[in-house]
């Protein structure tokens, strides 16, 4: 039996009737045509399908779409909402050459977003640990780690003037 659900994706609201066995990944890609979210291993190892749900990164391939009813979802299409300017994380990935074939990139950038929203000043070790659920077969990871460190610097909240210590 199909379930009537409401998905809130990148500030758009969709009403859908969905079979219970379909994953969030299926629905994002096939029903909503948001193909920036990739499907790699389908078993939670590679991270290509990473999306942000209620502020946390998850694997969309292991999430039933029906269970996402009323939840706030952000995909890679929502990272730079204007569609013109890139998000600082995306800018740094381009500048540092952290993208080669690009298949892992949406997942990598959303894992970076997840990290920086919890920890705005991560160490290199923390950056590497935050990518434990994302595989890249091209870059050797170093450029990606550099890009995330650079974007953390860019996104640093500016110090308020006249603030006494």
């Amino acid at each position: 039996m199909k379930h009537e659900i409401t998905l809130k994706v990148n500030n758009d609201t969709y009403s859908l009737a969905i079979d219970p066995w379909r994953t969030l990944n299926d629905v994002l890609r096939e029903d909503l045509n948001l193909t920036g979210t990739k499907l790699g291993c389908g078993s939670g190892d590679c991270g290509a399908c990473t999306v942000i749900v209620d502020g946390r990164s998850i694997s969309s391939c292991l999430t039933l779409a029906v269970e996402m009813d009323q939840k706030k979802i952000m995909t890679i299409e929502g990272l730079a909402p204007s569609g013109e300017e890139l998000h600082p994380i995306q800018e740094s990935f381009v500048e540092k050459g952290a993208i080669q074939c690009g298949f892992c990139t949406p997942g990598m950038e959303l894992s970076a977003y997840n990290l920086l929203s919890q920890n705005p000043h991560p160490s290199e070790k923390e950056i590497r640990e935050s990518l434990s659920g994302n595989l890249c077969r091209c870059t050797g990871y170093n450029k990606i780690v550099e890009a995330i460190a650079e974007s953390a610097d860019k996104m640093k909240p500016k110090k308020k003037k006249g603030r006494k210590k």
Binding site: G44, D45, G47, T50, R56, S57, I58, S59, L62, T63, S111, N114, E129, S130, S132, G133, N134
Partner: peptide, 9 residues
């Protein structure tokens, strides 16, 4: 246990 995404699920 596992990785960041799996620990969030």
């Amino acid at each position: 246990t596992a990785n960041v995404q799996i620990r969030n699920m």
